[in-house]
Design a protein around this nucleic acid. Structure first.
Lengths: 360, 360
DNA sequence: TTTGTTAGTGTTTGCGCAAACATGATTGGT
DNA sequence: ACCAATCATGTTTGCGCAAACACTAACAAA
């Protein structure tokens, strides 16, 4: 590889690079010492400039910066982390990314962390079992993270014996681990209550519920709130139907519900199942909202284009993500652990899938 | 807090450091030396055990492992990285996570990387501008990554002058940067061709197209393939309608399309827009597929629950993600850079939204 | 004058790990 | 018996950085 003196060795990627040793070995990195030599100062001064210390006179700083640019110096984050014992990195453990909520939450986490100059390391749980979770936390422990955010929609965290290096802070999303960890979550109960109350207020005798899978905390809490709201209003509580969040499972539930004579109002635990319900009702000749009113949960962007546009409970996933990061950074800053639950409010979005029951 | 684009990247960490400052310091970590002392061996032997070297006799290994467990030893990845010069980490730069495809791809990347013992560091692009991309790559350069996968749905990468430490490998998803980088992408053109051919084969005179936003590579390629397929078949090419991937934009396009007398077949560039089209047609009294046939793109899980179930082009996002990781690890292993394009095939899924045109 | 005091810079040191080399113990071939 | 080869383990070293401290010059206060 030819050295053009004065040319920075940092490549614009368009220039293909000649072979320079197997890549998993050392890259010929420019170190502080190189910069120091070129700038005619000590490496400590380079360090100071690099860290924005105020104790460097302007002219020196300029020289050092010039040298940095010329050599294309990049601080080596491994060495930095080794020296400082912190990594400015948050590990995110997630079950499945393919749910809208997790995705949105993750995006907010990434954005907010980046804003505060923290990096995100993503650790997927490979299998929805305790062993899978264990493995994820173990990998986390081996990685360079200062904190962990676990996006756990499932009932397994409590049982898992989680070992993390001392000092690593944890925030959990969507779980009941509030005794041990900080928990941030959508206010599922209140959202569900709003949905059920809306239907009741419309004049429906009672509200049926298509719940999410049993393992899910969110599903469990929505179902519990549905039940208690009904009970509090003195209504009968119909049997729960259970889906798995998918539109197909909603469709299956809808086929059964369409045959229930006295079913005039349904609360589906998420929008995708509601979509399936709509399809089932349509195929069974039940019209929404004339024959049956339907409320979903999530407010996916497409909900307003469903047939009919879906009344649903809006979740603020971005807020959940933001609070996770804020909370965990707070814990890091103060070096405290603060178990407890932060609830993010929901909002009922009324569209065209709900109406008063037909007069009988 | 603002960083001038021209300033050296080394400053970026300095600002936030004060903010998170104080408590980010050393955790009392258990080091190899501690383990070595307890096990009565040298730290080098601990290192060997830790790295699975075969040159350790079984009894010694057991002692060391026992000591590790007793002390709760975790190898310090920063020190490891410092020593080895590699991080076993892949950086993923992504625009927006809120599209199904990106998320699925990301999930596959994370899973596949984990399988090969690589960690994923997520870098969000904060703004869809060149500066935003620049910033993401800069942050990447400061982080400890061996390779970068960029999930770029947008036309900006080619223009961005990207600087990365030497030796960092790059793979790009959904872009035309094939000259410079390895590119992995769904075979958009073939997918679009399948969709259009399907409609033509059904007997439609021509096929209208609701395209995605202009900045999108995928949208551009789907539209181009639509046009060329039509032309190759000797059909007239109707004007393109343009949406922004959202159901609402599809709805808007659908309202206009419903008024076109001779429009009997539509190819929507994604499923969500197709959903919007369905709604518009329904409201305009056009029935699908009797009056108008419709094909989508993506095959979102809910597509089978649309009204009617949507004929669409299935994309294999997981495969895209897997190939990204395989390719980038291959580049790392062989220390080569291999520009070129890997195309992942699509599949036409025929459901109920397409039919032969009504006899006139 | 002398003695701080400060601001700017340099020197030393060690973070935890693993490569390179060194050592000591065992085996095997002759 | 000898030496050499092999194996298991120990010792030294330095990765790049920044904390701690040392030093110098300049200037103020006594």
């Amino acid at each position: 590889m030819e050295h053009e003196p004065g040319q920075p060795p940092v490549h614009n990627l368009s220039a293909a690079q000649g072979a320079a040793g197997a890549a998993l070995r050392r890259k010929p990195q420019v170190s502080m010492a190189d910069v120091a030599k070129l700038a005619g100062v000590s490496s400590q001064t380079v360090s100071r400039v690099s860290n924005g210390s105020p104790d460097v006179i302007e002219s020196t700083r300029r020289q050092v910066i010039a040298a940095m640019n010329e050599l294309g110096y990049r601080p080596n984050s491994a060495a930095r982390a080794l020296k400082r014992g912190s990594f400015r990195t948050i590990g995110v453990i997630t079950f499945s990314l393919s749910s809208l909520g997790n995705m949105r939450t993750l995006e907010a986490i990434a954005l907010n962390a980046a804003r505060q100059d923290f990096a995100i390391t993503l650790i997927p749980v490979t299998a929805p079992t305790q062993a899978g979770i264990q493995g994820a936390f173990t990998r986390m422990g081996e990685l360079a993270v200062d904190a962990v955010i676990a996006i756990m929609e499932v009932h397994l965290l409590d049982a898992a014996t989680v070992t993390l290096p001392p000092g690593v802070k944890v925030v959990v999303v969507d779980s009941d681990a509030g005794e041990q960890y900080s928990v941030v979550d959508t206010d599922q109960a209140d959202g569900a209550r709003k949905a059920v109350r809306h239907l009741l207020d419309l004049g429906h005798e009672t509200v049926w519920h298509v719940a999410g899978p049993e393992e899910s905390f969110a599903a469990e809490r929505r179902a519990a709130a549905w039940r208690s709201t009904l009970t509090a209003a003195g209504k009968t509580v119909p049997p729960v139907l259970r889906g798995d969040w998918s539109a197909d499972s909603g469709y299956a539930a809808g086929l059964r519900l369409a045959d229930e004579r006295d079913c005039t109002a349904v609360f589906a635990a998420n929008d995708h199942m509601a979509l399936g319900l709509l399809r089932a009702f349509r195929e069974k000749g039940k019209s929404v909202p004339e024959d049956i009113s339907l409320v979903g949960f999530d407010d996916v962007p497409e909900a307003s284009s469903y047939a009919p546009p879906l009344t649903t409970v809006h979740q603020n996933f971005a807020d959940v993500g933001n609070r996770c990061v804020d909370n965990v950074l707070q814990q890091i800053r103060t070096n405290t652990t603060e178990p407890g639950v932060i609830l993010v409010p929901t909002e009922l979005v009324i569209r065209a899938s709900t109406a008063a029951p037909k007069a009988t």
